[in-house]
Design a protein around this nucleic acid. Structure first.
Length: 604
DNA sequence: GCGATCAGTT
DNA sequence: CACAACTGATCGC
């Protein structure tokens, strides 16, 4: 349940998903989706009065949300004040103070959130930076990377703050089966039951909320059986849903509800009252969609669980899992993150601890609470932040590094709308690539005399890699690489980015999950286990080793070079010989790493 | 009497 | 296994 107060600190004149208290003074309102916990105060007399006295205050939402909202007569008074914004169409909005005439412009873009019909995230851009409010969301790994408008050119936007749906932001919710897996499980169960006879019917025990529609439409589509629901007038202008639902109780799939539907069901009666057809009693099973999750090491079980003679529970989630959240956030890599939800059993500070390592601000503001990695990292960081350019931040959050090096040109972005966005992106993209080449410029030519990684490490891809790949992907690996590699298609820049990302995520998962499982291994050991075929780990090891053993030659400049070449590391994973700085230094690093590597392998 | 809030239920 | 919403009790306006 959302506990977001309604305002983002960068743009206090807008209120999102909250309409009470201080939000009554907002200059513009935004609604991410039609769930009650995001609509507090929306039909309160106080807001109604405000609306009557003011000419310019509007509510912005997606066309579908507007439709769903206005279906309820309780919100009819909003009718002329709701502005439906098309998805993925940047729109400029003037925030005017009606008493002083004071004005501020903001650009907003709606991004699909995958939570329920009409659900969106809001991307705000203005003079106080770019802010992403996610509302509630379920996005699979890699989906952020596929959202064009989260990017500027080929790179992810420089996002100041993310206000994040953290419903399942807890390592215990590491994995939730994908929509497709869940859907297929339910589909097969429903298919096998309804096939038995026309008197075999299923009751989908869904909570009264938007979000199950894609289940209904898919079942109907696949099985040719419409779904009985209590109400469907809200879908009157959504043919793709309307076609698959019905108010005719004479169907084999029901998603109707009744206040005492459990009691009805125990009496072999559907919530709509039907108990037989043509005198023949029905055979009813109930399927209750509910969230099922799996920890990082939990063995996956079926997405369908039988809970009684005629009852089943089926996996279904409106919200992203922990690993999906990590994938999303680490891809965006904002400066700040604020949780909108407290997962059950966690305090706000605990959630922030989990998210912080995925953000840029982490390195700078790190508090001495940070334990699992020991003091070395911290010393290291202090060292480097003193020397200026945030090279460590670049390592841990590389995708935005180049953008960060210079302030993003908001003006360019804001001026261009819709189709012009491309040209805007191009211009800023060009700028960034100029910058990039500036950084990497003096080490473009490969150096033949540099020591080679494979001269020190022969193994990999044969023994260890297979064993590792068989495992269920660990949070980090899954988060970083899966999303970015499988998805592929051009964008070699993102690939580069994610290699860094996965390094970052790995790092986190050691800290987070292992800590949780009270397995306080050092990072060194864990990354050794994975070395060689995971270059993100290589970077880390290299760094740690250099740090612990001989640090003298490290300069921020050197770090920069290492980072900027990592894209080539990734293209040729086993021979990162592209252009590492200072051959002798590198040789000694490799040697140390190789030694350590062998020792560990003997030990295990 | 309405709405906000809380605890309990599904 | 939770979520989102509903129910009912209580309180204040």
């Amino acid at each position: 349940m959302s506990r977001f107060g309604g305002r983002v600190r960068e743009y206090p004149w807008v209120s999102i998903d909250r309409f009470d208290h201080h939000n009554l003074r907002a200059r513009a309102y935004f609604l991410s989706h039609c769930h009650k916990d995001h609509m507090r105060g929306l039909r309160a007399p106080a807001l109604r009065r405000r609306l009557e006295c003011s000419l310019k205050v509007n509510l912005y939402c997606s066309p579908v949300t507007k439709e769903l909202l206005l279906t309820s007569s309780k919100y009819k008074f909003w009718e002329n004040r709701i502005v439906a914004l098309e998805i993925e169409t940047p729109t400029q909005i003037s925030l005017v103070d009606e008493t002083s005439g004071e004005k501020e412009d903001i650009e907003v873009t709606l991004l699909p959130a995958g939570h329920c019909p009409g659900s969106v995230m809001f991307l705000f851009q203005g003079e106080n930076g770019t802010v992403l409010y996610t509302g509630d969301f379920r996005l699979a790994k890699g989906e952020a990377a596929r959202m064009e408008l989260l990017h500027s050119g080929t790179r992810v936007r420089d996002i100041q703050s993310v206000y994040l749906d953290t419903t399942f932001c807890d390592p215990k919710f590491h994995h939730i089966p994908s929509r497709e897996e869940c859907l297929n499980g339910i589909l097969e169960l429903v298919r096998s039951w309804t096939m038995l006879s026309r008197y075999h019917v299923v009751w989908l025990n869904c909570k009264a909320a938007y979000g199950y529609e894609y289940l209904f439409t898919n079942l109907s589509e696949e099985l040719g059986i419409k779904v009985h629901v209590n109400k469907l007038d809200m879908f009157k202008n959504m043919p793709e849903i309307l076609y698959h639902v019905t108010t005719d109780r004479n169907t084999q799939i029901h998603a109707c509800r009744h206040p005492r539907d459990d009691y009805y069901f125990r009496g072999n009666r559907l919530p709509c009252g039907v108990t037989s057809q043509n005198g023949t009693p029905l055979h009813i099973i109930s399927i209750k969609p509910s969230t099922m999750w799996f920890g990082e090491r939990t063995k996956k079980t079926s997405v369908i669980v039988r809970t009684g003679e005629s009852s089943y529970r089926a996996c279904f989630s409106f919200h992203s899992s922990y690993s999906e959240i990590k994938d999303f956030l680490s891809y965006i890599c904002p400066v700040n993150v604020y949780p909108n939800v407290l997962p059950v059993g966690l305090r706000e500070d605990q959630v922030i601890e989990l998210l912080k390592p995925l953000c840029r601000s982490y390195r700078r503001n790190m508090e001495p609470k940070y334990k699992p990695l020991g003091t070395l990292k911290r010393v290291h960081k202090t060292d480097l932040s003193d020397t200026g350019k945030s090279s460590l931040r670049a390592k841990f959050c590389d995708q935005t590094f180049h953008e960060l090096s210079e302030p993003e040109e908001n003006t360019v972005e804001v001026l261009s709308h819709g189709s012009d966005a491309t040209s805007a992106s191009n211009s800023s993209g060009k700028k960034h690539s100029d910058l990039t080449s500036g950084v990497t410029g003096d080490q473009q030519e490969p150096n033949a005399h540099l020591p080679r990684w494979d001269a020190f490490f022969k193994c990999n891809r044969t023994d260890e890699s297979s064993e590792n790949e068989d495992n269920f992907p660990s949070s980090a690996d899954a988060g970083g690489s899966q999303s970015l590699f499988s998805d592929s298609e051009g964008v070699s820049d993102s690939t580069h980015i994610s290699s860094q990302n996965s390094s970052q995520s790995t790092h986190i998962s050691e800290q987070g999950s292992q800590g949780w499982d009270s397995q306080m291994d050092t990072v060194l050991i864990t990354s050794q286990e994975r070395n060689a075929f995971d270059f993100s780990c290589f970077n880390k090891d290299c760094e740690e080793d250099a740090e612990t053993v001989s640090d003298s030659s490290r300069t921020p400049d050197l770090e920069l070079k290492k980072d900027s070449q990592s894209s080539s590391d990734f293209e040729i994973p086993l021979t990162p010989d592209a252009e590492l700085p200072q051959p002798d230094k590198l040789r000694s690093l490799y040697r140390k790493l190789a030694r350590s590597h062998n020792m560990k392998r003997k030990c295990s």
